[in-house]
Amino acid sequence: MTSSPTLETRSFSVNGRAVTVHVPEDTTLLSALRHDLDLKGTRVGCTEGYCGACTVLVDGRPVQSCNTPLWSVDGKTITTVEGLARGDVLGPVQEAFLLEQAAQCGYCTNGIIMTVTGLLSQNPPATKHEIVEVLDERHICRCGAQTRILKAIDRAIATIGGAAR
């Protein structure tokens, strides 16, 4: 006989849409995004806070969603990779990664795209050096796409910097 979990209700905004979910206690942001909101562009990686595949933006800041309890984002604004494009036009960081073909399997990529998007949206935007420091600390790529990812970051900085000017 299945014992039903005790549910709690959480409300927040995802990609510009207000959502309310009823989830078991201690549900993570990652689990809510993937299981309850069917937003699977946010990847499940190590779920231990190391690999960064699950990174999303919370109020504009890159956060690993696997170790972020859902209660902590109540009322906050979440952006996932699904929220970066405008219609058919990819977000500038996504576009930079696509143009540089900055992936092999592409599993770690979306988390990195979110981190770079968040750091370049800061005021003032992060420098390349600062971005690489964050990648070293919070992201892992196993296929060996790092040199392409670094080129994509250069391209994104040029695009976004150009747009800002």
Binding site: R34, D38, L39, K40, G41, R43, V44, V81, E82, L84, A85, L90, Q94, F97, L98, Q101, A103, G106, Y107, T109, N110, I113
Partner: peptide
């Protein structure tokens, strides 16, 4: 000539873990 699978993977589901 771009990889045929990357655009979709960079935007949403694309892997076995994303199946339902």
């Amino acid at each position: 000539l771009h990889r045929i699978d990357l655009r979709a993977k960079f935007s949403g589901p694309g892997f076995i873990q994303d199946m339902a």
